[in-house]
Amino acid sequence: MNHLTDEALNEYLDNELPNRAEAELHLSQCADCAARLTALQTLFDEIESLPELALSKHLAAPFTRRDAGFALPTWLKLTATLQAALALVILVIAAPFVTNMLPAIQAPSMSDMFLQLQSQWMAWLDRLSSFHFPSLPSIAMPDISSIMLMLILAGVSFLWLIGNGLLLRNQR
């Protein structure tokens, strides 16, 4: 009686052996081959019982982040709104000065332009320092010195930059 080869036992367990019934008949009569089959089956079971390892990072992050897009935190939304409101206020305050300044800027040479800009800037600061709201007598407007005004403008610009930086970082 010919024993089953190792290859035949492998194919039998893989359900790839063509003459399966013949092999089963032999296995029922041959203790040696049956023992080899059991040993091989144990190996299969051991390989397949290997527990799964846990991941150390979340692989879905690129997909969820790409989709999340503009799900900004509340504080960031408030910063952006405040930034937009401040920009609007500054635009309203600056509009008359800018319209006054625009016709004056006609010098073709850079040095002239620079000097003109400088004088306009100084004049603008002077006007700002003495600026009142005459048309709104009921609203008490505080006197703002030119230094204070510059500090406020610098603060607003800084806020603006920080806000934009945060928005861009969140988009990445």
Binding site: H58, L59, A60, F63, T64, R66, D67, A68
Partner: peptide, 9 residues
């Protein structure tokens, strides 16, 4: 893409 993110998870 969030649907695919769920599949990935």
């Amino acid at each position: 893409t969030d649907a695919y993110g769920e599949l990935v998870t």
